[in-house]
Structure formats: C-alpha cells, structure tokens
Nucleic acid binder design. Structure first.
Lengths: 223, 223
DNA sequence: CGACCATTTGATATGGATCAAGCGATGTGG
DNA sequence: CCACATCGCTTGATCCATATCAAATGGTCG
C-alpha cells in the first residue's frame, strides 16, 4: 500500500503530543492523519510490517486471508470508531481492505508503542483492544460450528448491535463478504436470508437493507 | 472450583516477590503455588470471576463452552509450559478442565496485574500472551472452514509441533475432545484418521499414539 | 474373565456446496 | 428516453461431505 501521505502528516504532528495521555483514542485525533480509500482498496497486506494503526472514521473495513485453495476467509469487519491493524509483533496477520468508500485515521505504530511504554493506561488500552479482538475471534469460532441459519441470524444481530440503534440495518458489505465471514457460500447466505424473510424474522426492503422484525426468533436460533 | 489450597499458599509467598521482575514466567515459580487435578476436574467456569492465572506443569487442559443445543466447543488446549485463564476483564470467557491427571501452577490475577502496573516488561508479556491467544483463535477460525481431512491433518501437525520433538505424538486428549475442537463428530475424526493411516500419512499404533509418517502429505492438505 | 468405556466401522440421511439459470437495479450509449 | 449490458443477488436442481443412527471391536480395570 502507498502510505506517503500519512507518513509526512504524522511526522509533522508528532512533536505536538509528548505529554502523557489519558486515552489511547485521543492519540488518533491528536497524532493521526486521515486518509480516504476507494472501494476494495488495500490498506495493508498479510505479512507486511505493521507500520501503522488504523481507526475507521466512516465506511467499513474487512480483514482477510486467502487460503491455498483460493477461498477467502474474512477475519473481521471494522465499523466507524473501531481500531484495527494493531499488532504486538511487527507483522500483520491478515490483509485489510476498505469495503466501500472509506475514511480512516492513521497513526504510526511506533508512536503508539512508545506512548504505551511511558503511559501504563495506554498500554492497558492497547492490551484491552487485543483482548477484545480475541473475544470476537472466539465468538467467530463458535459461529462457525453452527447451522447456516444460526450463523446468518447471529451475524445480523451482531451487525445490528454495532451499526444501528434501530431495527433497520444498512449493511456495508456484500453477500460475498458475509459468506466469506460466515464460512458459507453466497448462495446459502442468500437463500437463508430469503428464508428468514419468509418466516417474517427479517424484512428485506433491498439487498443491503435488513429489518430485524423478530429479534426473539433470531436469538432463539442461537446457542 | 475449590481453591482453598492455592489461596493460602499464595498469600504466604507473595511478600517474597516485591522487586521488579524480568520475566512474567518467573512469577509463576516465585509466587505461584501448585495444585494437582484429576481427569475432567473443573479449574474454572465460564462467567466466573477470573481470580487466578494458571500455567500447566504437566498433563493438559481444555477450555470450552457449551452451546444452547448441548454441543461443546473446545476453544483451546493447553500443554505443559503454557499459560491460560488470563483475562483482562474480570470474568472468564470459557470454562477450563484438566484433561487427564494434571498439575498446574497458580498465581493470583491481582498479583500479576499489579506486577504489570509496576513493570512495563511484565505488562508487555501479558499483552503478548493475549496476542498469541488471538493468533491461535484466528488460526482456529481458518481451521473450521476446511474439510475434515484438512482439519485433522492440521490438528496433528500442530500437536506435533507443540508436544513432540519426534514424529511420534502422544495425544493427551480423547477423540471427543478433538472432535469438539475441530467442529466435527467423533465418528468423522475417527474415520479421517483411519483414512490418513490407510494412505500411510500417519501410523496409529494405538488410539492416542500417532506417528507422522508423511508430513509433506499432511501439509499438502492445508491451505 | 467380564464389564465398561473409548474407538472404529457400517448404513443411511441431510444440510450446504456446486452448477446453472433467472432477475432486478444501475449505468451507458444510441 | 429507451434498449441493452453489467453486476450483484436470488432461485432452482443436483451432488457430496459429513452427520446421524447403529453395531462391532478393543483396551483397561476390577
């Protein structure tokens, strides 16, 4: 990925933030620079050195890996306000791409790390971020042993929690993205959604717009 | 779980370790107390407050959760030298049990945490532990979208890396444990192993003893 | 030896994958 | 403004990997 813009922008803003900082998230506002990405634009690649940490401002991001057989496994989706690309080792584990048109804030990983060395609260915030990612990965594991219906229902409920205060969810990702996250085919995801719609558990005013009509029924599917 | 023994033993040893400590793992030796567990003995339960952190001395441990439909998903296996039960929140995410007869070292979580507050190296070691758990959880996700053959082959190779320097692996866990880790049934695990044996990829001198005869073939399955 | 439990093996069923076609929205050129 | 191409999504038909149900085998411990 080409990263010339944030590099220089960050270098300029770094001297302005030497004091201890109560909140890691402030670091993004004070030290970060902003960049805009087009649909499907790569942010970083698997095995690349982890030079930056990112926070979604608007849009959405997917992390993924391509398996030997060509299938793509999506590790996670990141929505506005969420931080991604943080590694304790020097290498990214997964690749990251913007889903639609997306804006992210970027800070140098080395800056975040040295901040953490000076400030225990920041160190703890970083650890907490990794712990949250672990928690989500564990949930993801549990998702993958469920039936297609359960996976899709779980996914919609999770997206609803993360995106919308209301029962109408505007999904930022395609059916293929959902399929690759849930370990299903696009056909199965589509069929399952149609089925949930026919049971009136959800409404489908359009492909990307989902209405959760019966959360109880959706929840009932899950273990 | 009954925890009276470590509690008192730990209280006695705590005052002996106030100085900064180069390595988190030393904490287990200096501050920890040891406990012996019988087969299938519970170490902690899901949602229980995380009062201790554990390190396997001998034997093996599984963490797991029971889904609503009664199925058990094993999150991870822990082998001698490995640390488990560390949470950044106050609650355990998964339950933990000894697999066979197992010895663990135990230290109070609060002691580890306060050590981390004083010593940045310890804090980083704890974070690193969570990061490693995350890495494994991500590998686990990728495992679960593979075929039965691929899952079993992956599992055996991983166990070999972690248990044995040689090609003969003595598995500490049952077929049911393996099945619940891989998201398969016990029958499928058994059949798959028989099939790998018939292809001479592995040898099966006994159910728990696996000989990796052809690592290349096993690796070739994986993506 | 005999009981018990873990594992293996066999027969059948089924959920989701695969292959294939149809549909609907969006955009482009005539 | 409409014909038509494109792309993402849905729907249909069939196949296959793994689950399920059932029974046999083997190893361990009294």
């Amino acid at each position: 990925m080409l990263m010339q813009t944030p590099r220089s922008a960050f270098a300029a803003s770094q001297p302005a933030a030497p004091a201890p900082m109560a909140d890691l998230f402030d670091a993004f506002n004070l030290m970060g620079s902003q960049m805009t990405l087009g649909p499907n634009e790569e942010i970083f690649g698997e095995k690349e050195p982890a030079e930056y940490v990112y926070k979604v401002v608007s849009g959405a991001v997917r992390t993924y890996t391509i398996l030997k057989d060509g299938r793509r496994q999506i590790g996670a989706f990141y929505l506005p306000g969420e931080i991604f690309g943080l590694e304790i080792d020097n290498e990214h584990q997964l690749s990251a791409e913007a889903i639609g048109s997306t804006v992210v804030r970027v800070v140098r990983r080395s800056a975040v790390m040295s901040l953490a060395e000076r400030d225990g609260e920041v160190a703890r915030a970083l650890w907490s971020l990794t712990a949250r990612a672990l928690y989500r990965a564990q949930e993801h594991v549990m998702l993958l042993i469920k039936s297609a219906q359960q996976r899709v229902a779980c996914f919609l409920l999770e997206m609803s929690d993360r995106i919308a205060a209301t029962d109408t969810v505007e999904l930022p990702m395609s059916r293929q993205d959902i399929a690759d996250y849930l370990g299903l085919t696009i056909e199965t995801v589509s069929r399952t959604m149609s089925q949930l719609a026919s049971e009136s558990s959800i409404g489908l005013p359009s492909a990307r717009r989902i209405v959760l009509r019966n959360r109880r029924a959706l929840n009932a599917l899950n273990a």
